[in-house]
């Protein structure tokens, strides 16, 4: 464990806290893409299948359960719970996620670590996580303006993988036999998708004014 990975995990947890607060306290999922939340649920449920046989640390196993539980709860609330379910707009949040899941599944089959079924599933979850934010970014693009809490949610989510990139650089230089090109490539793509958002987020938050984040 290093400070970058720890901060990355904290940023990821923060993104869950912000989103859960927003949809439970704010009683509204307006501006949140259910499609993206469904993709994250698939990502965590597939990646953490090894919860039952890979025990790395209590920290690791605990967060795996937390991430599966939170992502599932978020999908449940937005999909089934009133009044949140009435604030979800299927016309706006209509990104064809099958065009994300399909190619990621093929990529997971073709490019993975050890050609075992679980490694294929693991690689699938890594590729899917890299593109899972797309429906959310498309929704924000359509709306033009981003609600304050939602902007912090997306920023925390982008920061988490950005911090993981730093963690991988740190591990590359401090561990002599460490090479993880699959997750490095996917993590770079994932963080890259946020660059545009980060630019507008920074512009809107600069100088302490909390002007709304505007996406062109």
């Amino acid at each position: 464990m290093n400070i970058f990975r720890f901060l990355g995990d904290m940023s990821h947890i923060l993104s869950f806290v912000i989103l859960l607060l927003k949809i439970t306290q704010g009683k509204s999922a307006a501006g949140i893409s259910l499609r993206t939340q469904e993709l994250y649920m698939i990502v965590f449920c597939s990646r953490y299948l090894d919860l039952f046989w890979n025990f790395s640390s209590l920290y690791n196993s605990f967060l795996k359960v937390v991430f599966i539980a939170c992502s599932s709860a978020i999908v449940y609330i937005i999909r089934f719970k009133s009044p949140q379910k009435d604030t979800w707009n299927p016309e706006l949040d209509n990104f064809p996620i099958q065009y994300l899941i399909g190619p990621c599944a093929v990529a997971g089959l073709l490019i993975n670590q050890d050609w075992t079924p679980f490694e294929m599933i693991w690689a699938f979850s890594i590729y899917l996580e890299a593109v899972a934010i797309l429906p959310q970014l498309f929704l924000l693009q359509k709306q033009g303006e981003v609600e304050n809490l939602t902007s912090h949610y997306v920023a925390a989510l982008g920061a988490y993988r950005g911090l993981y990139l730093m963690n991988w650089v740190y591990r590359y230089f401090t561990e002599d036999d460490y090479l993880q090109r699959i997750v490095w490539f996917a993590g770079t793509v994932q963080t890259g998708l946020y660059i545009d958002f980060f630019y507008h987020y920074y512009q809107s938050k600069r100088g302490g004014l909390s002007r709304p984040v505007k996406l062109p």
Binding site: D9, N60, D177, Q180, R181
Partner: peptide, 10 residues
């Protein structure tokens, strides 16, 4: 170095 996946990352 060769690719290996440490199972310690989330």
């Amino acid at each position: 170095r060769h690719d290996r996946r440490p199972h310690d990352e989330l």
